[in-house]
Structures are given as C-alpha cells and as structure tokens.
Design a protein around this nucleic acid. Structure first.
Lengths: 293, 293
DNA sequence: CCGACACTGTGCAAATATGCAAAACGGTTT
DNA sequence: AAACCGTTTTGCATATTTGCACAGTGTCGG
C-alpha cells in the first residue's frame, strides 16, 4: 500500500472533487483519479460512489478519511517539532492575510521581513474565509476578530478602528444638510455587513459591493457613505470621515498560528517582526487623526 | 511531503540498513537510499547519521520512527476494519508456520483450503523466529507454544506430543542393552534444546543439527536418539520410539492472529478450516500409537 | 595482513507515473 | 432541446522513478 495515496485521498475527501483536490495538491486531476482508483483496487474496497451531486464517500471511505486525518496530524506535528529543533531561520513561511490589509499597509512590513530574512521564503496568500490552520493551510494567519479560535495561539497586534467615510464632496454636502446619507451596501465581511445594517435599518441600497477595495472606489465616486477601517479611509485624501470612529466598532488584529509551531524559528521571528512594526503604526490603526495630519 | 517516504523510512528504522529494508519492502536498496535522502531534503533535517556499526537515527529520525509506527498502526487497523466490512472471502492471506509442520502434515490441509477458496491467495511462509503480527508481517501465525502472546488472540488447535526417537535398528540394539543411548545435539528450537539438555546433562554430542528435518535424517542414519514431535517420528517407518511421550513435553499448537483481524472473513474461514481438519488428526498429534497402526 | 563479505552510492536503461489535451458525462441555464 | 459549465475519463508524449550492474568502502575472520 502506497501511503501517499492516502494523502491524495484525504485531499479529495476534503475538497469533494478530483479537480479541487488536484488544485490544492498542485497536481493533475487525472493523477488524483488514477491514484484513488489504484488505492481502491489495492484495498479491494470502494471508497467513494457517485451520487446526485458529486461523489459521496462510502463507509470505508469515511473511515479512511478519519484515519488519514489522524495521520496528517501526526506528520504535521512531527514536522513542526523537527523544524523547531533545527531552530534555523530557513524554509517556507506561508502567511494568510486579509486582502485590504495585505495589499496596503502590511505590504511594506512584509517586504522588510523578507529583506531581513533572505533564507525564509515568504508566501503571502489572501484569504478572507476562515483558514484551517490545523491542517496547515498556512503557517500564520492575520485576522481581524474579537474572538480568536481557542485551539490556536497568537498575539493581539493592535486595535483596528473603523469609521464611516464618504468622499470629501459628499461629506461636505451631507453635513450642510442638503440630503440624507445614502449607505452603500457592503458584503465584504460579517462585521461590515452587520454594522451597515445597524446604521441603515431600511436596508435600501442603490449600490452594493462585496469587497473592501470596491467600497473605497465607490465612496470616492461620491455614491454614499460606508464603513471603512480608518487605516484605509484616512489614507485616501479624497475621502473624509462622515462620523468619527466608535469603540464598539473596534476590532482586534490578531496574528495566529498553531500550537505546534510556537517554537519554530521562522514563526517566532515573524511574530516579533510584526509586533515591532505594528507598534509604530498603532495610531494609524486606531484612527488617531493626529497621526495623519 | 510524500507520505510513502515515511513508510520506507519506517522499514529502514526497523531493519537498520538500507539493504534489509529494501528486502522487506521488495524494492531496491538504491531506492530506499534515494527516497530517504529526498525525505531528509524536504524536511531540511537529517534523519540518520553514520556511526561505527551501520547507521544511527538522529533525534528527529527517532521521532519520525515513532510517528511512522503510529501511522502504520492506523492504516493496519483501517485495512483490517475495511476488510472485515466487505466480508468477502477474497484477498491475500499470509500464514506463517513452522517449517517441519508446514512441509509435512499441514500441507494437505493448506491445499484443501486453497482449493475450497480459490479467491483467497494463500501465502505460506516459514518462519521459526517469532513473527510480529502487530506489524502484520503475516495475517495468521501457527505456533507451538504453551504461552501465546497476550496481545494476540487465537485458538488452541490441538496438543502436540513429543517423544524420543531413534532408528528402528538403533532402538532395538539399545533396548537389548548393547550400549548407552547417544543423544543428537539439536538446536532447532528452545523446547528441543532444553529437553535434550535435561535428558543428556553431560551435553556431549558427537553430532549436532539445527533443524528438525536434519534431526529426522540423522536419526534415520542411526546416529543416536533425539526428541521429535510424534506426528513426525511416527510418520517415519524407519524410526521407532526410544521412549514413550511424556505429558511434560506436550505443547499447544496455536493459531494466532491480531485482534483487528478477528472479523475478517478470510481469517475466520481459515481458522474454522484448520479447526475442522486438525480435529480429525488429533490422535496423530497427541501421539496415540493406535492412530498409526 | 589479506581476502571474503555485506552494505551503500552512482550511471544508465527500462518501467512507471505524470501532465497535457481531447473526449465523455451530468446538471443547469437559456 | 440545445448549449454551456464543471467535472471525470482516456490516450499519448514526456518526465520521473525504479531496477540493475558495478564500483567503492568498511568489517570480520582466518
């Protein structure tokens, strides 16, 4: 029995299709298909069967999935332990961050880390949906939240304040009482969706976006007002605050990683780097206007 | 990371050399060497280092060995469970038996099982040293013992009686008091060695053998007397009992297998077959002379 | 001290697995 | 019903891995 086929099967069981599994594994779907076939043949047991929508695991397949998961955990924790021992700042470090942050304020920080640690190849990946660090989809996750997962450990880097923004022109006209505020419908994350709903209970939006960068662009066009993290809104000279930030909209910026990685050099280095750098930007994140002017 | 490399590493860690690992895995030693090299490269951690005699595992290697062992257990128990579910009498059944039995009295029984179950490919392997059923070196073991391992389960098929044999001519001459009995030195198993020592405390042997079939041949030549299982000694017309079997020399014949395999069809079938067949041969095994005459 | 032996590393040819592209299939939409 | 999308399967050329043979090295025993 080829143990590597179990790894491939696990990817398939997670993703639900050969194609998706292949994509994650970075191999061809035909290979996934063939190797799972080979596995079934060797075990003399079908592991999956066609169903109405996609595939469904058989009982044996389900059990193998569980076993494979345990094996994965076993190997991941071994890898983490062995990396912790060698204690060298080498290897790959996969960081997942939120799009709007990674492409703006964080990028120079990443760049400096990379320059300071040339032997660590840093891979930044943008993922807005929650990433499964237990399965090591990434080594480190940067997340905005007030309730970080329990099984993960990490640091609260800073507080991210948000406020209501509009274009400079829009805000001026609005404040002089020319018309009611129009809210842009946002669907980029749970927080912004909820806050918008609270601020604009009628839920009437003439314009909707599902991505923070689109919110910025829409606001610039004078289409209305909407929530933005201050570090984004304040950085745009054509935008102005329609309301000042409120504490209830504060979010923690967390740097999270799996317990097993807590002693791995490249992770601790990255954590310390982020803490140092973010500390200098705390005013920007917390929306202290003085920091801008 | 290729999980299959962990499997190969485990074999290496067990056997202590590339060659031996390759032999057990049924692949080339160069492959073992290359894949372990590849594994070390991927982990960026040395797993083994040269030492005075052979290789020695590094700390990381030792940990990987432990992880790999757990993984193996995980997969073996999955395989057993999945085979148990399908409940079909198909697949490979690896039986390990003692040489002198397998080649004589048991062979017709194996043959009948094979004929009755054409979809099970039966592999008989002769191993005198204790086999590790936990690592599934075999599915079923046939062993002579009075203390079967605790972690294994199985059935006591019958009692194997042993007696002292010599050639017909030798026994006749000896019984008529022409000379003292000469003991052949045997080293085929702990039991025979111990018994021989007890019977012949001087430990003076003009002729020594280390295999039961050699004992038979030596006895036939009239070289002396020695212990044989009755089913072997009685089957040889040119041999006669120098002494009758004693109860203290009785051994249990056990059919042993791993707990996980207790519900696997091909194993239960084999067990039942063996029980049925051996029951008919109980007189031969217990050395009841009437059975022969 | 030398030869026999067993083990590991390397070059090359053969076997095997992979990627790629096209075809087949199922489900959904127009 | 037809066209489309995403997915899986299949055939084929290529890339990789494996086995094999040989060379190099260390150990053991005479």
């Amino acid at each position: 029995m080829d143990w590597d086929e179990v790894r491939i099967f696990l990817a398939f069981a997670r993703e639900g299709s050969f194609s998706a599994a292949a994509k994650r594994l970075g191999i061809q779907h035909s290979t996934v298909s063939r190797r799972i076939q080979a596995l079934e043949k060797k075990l003399a047991t079908p592991l999956l069967e066609r169903s109405a929508s996609g595939y469904e695991l058989t009982r044996a397949g389900e059990e193998l999935r569980i076993s494979a998961y345990r094996i994965e955990q076993e190997l991941l924790s071994f890898e983490a332990a062995s990396a912790g021992q060698s204690n060298e700042a080498v290897g790959e470090l996969r960081v997942t961050a939120i799009a709007n942050m990674a492409s703006t304020i964080l990028m120079p920080i990443f760049a400096r880390f990379s320059a300071a640690n040339p032997n660590i190849d840093l891979r930044i990946e943008v993922t807005n949906d929650s990433v499964r660090l237990a399965e090591r989809e990434a080594d480190v996750a940067l997340r905005q939240t007030n309730a970080p997962g329990e099984t993960l450990i990490g640091t609260r880097l800073t507080t991210v304040a948000s406020a209501v923004y509009g274009s400079v022109g829009y805000c001026k006209a609005y404040k002089s009482g020319q018309f009611d505020e129009k809210w842009i419908g946002v669907d980029c994350c749970d927080y912004h969706r909820t806050w918008t709903k609270q601020a604009c209970p009628t839920n009437e939006h003439a314009f909707c976006v599902d991505e923070t960068s689109l919110t910025v662009a829409a606001l610039k066009e004078g289409l209305g007002v909407g929530y933005l993290p201050c570090f984004l809104g304040d950085a745009e000279p054509t935008l102005a605050r329609a309301r000042e930030p409120e504490q209830q909209h504060d979010l923690g910026l967390w740097l999270l990683y799996h317990r097993d990685l807590r002693n791995v050099k490249r992770v601790t280095l990255f954590r310390e780097h982020m803490q140092r750098e973010i500390k200098q930007l705390v005013d920007i994140f917390e929306g202290k206007q003085e920091a801008i002017r």
